[in-house]
């Protein structure tokens, strides 16, 4: 996972053709192959390579959590000892109610937190219990934490590959 691989022209065209979703037809890869003038086998092989190298994280149904009733979402930020940030990041990232966990630098004196985790629940009470569970897991190493609720999404656009643009995707 995470090896640098270079995408060639056909790989990039496959990314562009599939990033908004596969067609919901019996043979979706054949459908993509027809659009790109190649074979379904070629499309599947290249997608498998991108999956194995981590460029594709997963292939499946992409749920809309908000529509499905997940209203209690919060960005939690934690101040943990720097030498333990990787250990705790991995533990928190493995929790099934955490969708993303990141190590980011502190920005002192305004910002003391070095670990970020997006926590999800159906409501704020449930969210609070989950955050308490993280705090308990960290014990004394939880020197401080906060929850930042989003009140408005002002802009959210996916990063899109543009056809013909040279791109190297790496860790």
């Amino acid at each position: 996972m995470g090896d640098d691989i270079k995408l060639d022209e056909l790989d990039r065209r496959i990314v562009v053709a599939t990033q908004a979703g596969l067609p919901l037809v019996a043979e979706p890869y054949q459908h993509i192959a027809d659009e790109l003038g190649t074979t379904a086998k070629e499309v599947m092989q290249r997608m498998r390579r991108m999956l194995e190298s981590g460029i594709i994280r997963r292939i499946g149904a992409v749920p809309n959590h908000y529509t499905l009733g997940f209203r209690g979402n919060g960005m939690t930020v934690w101040d943990v000892p720097d030498e333990k940030v990787v250990e705790y990041g991995e533990k928190i990232g493995a929790l099934d109610f955490v969708s993303h966990a990141y190590h980011r630098p502190r920005f002192l004196p305004e910002w003391r937190y070095n670990l970020f985790a997006m926590v999800h629940g159906t409501n704020r009470d449930e969210l609070k219990h989950k955050i308490d569970a993280i705090a308990e897991m960290l014990g004394k190493d939880n020197r401080a934490h906060e929850v930042l609720f989003s009140t408005r999404i002002l802009k959210k656009t996916g990063l899109r590959l543009i056809p013909g643009q040279k791109t190297v995707i790496r860790e």
């Binding site: 990314v15 599939t18 990033q19 908004a20 979703g21 596969l22 919901l24 997608m47 991108m50 999956l51 981590g54 460029i55 594709i56 994280r57 997963r58 292939i59 499946g60 149904a61 992409v62 749920p63 809309n64 529509t67 499905l68 990063l159 590959l161 791109t167 995707i169 790496r170 860790e171």
Partner: peptide, 13 residues
């Protein structure tokens, strides 16, 4: 309920 069915790409680095 779902936005699409297909590959989820790693954010471009």
């Amino acid at each position: 309920m779902i936005s699409r069915v297909g590959p989820v790409f790693k954010p471009k680095r």
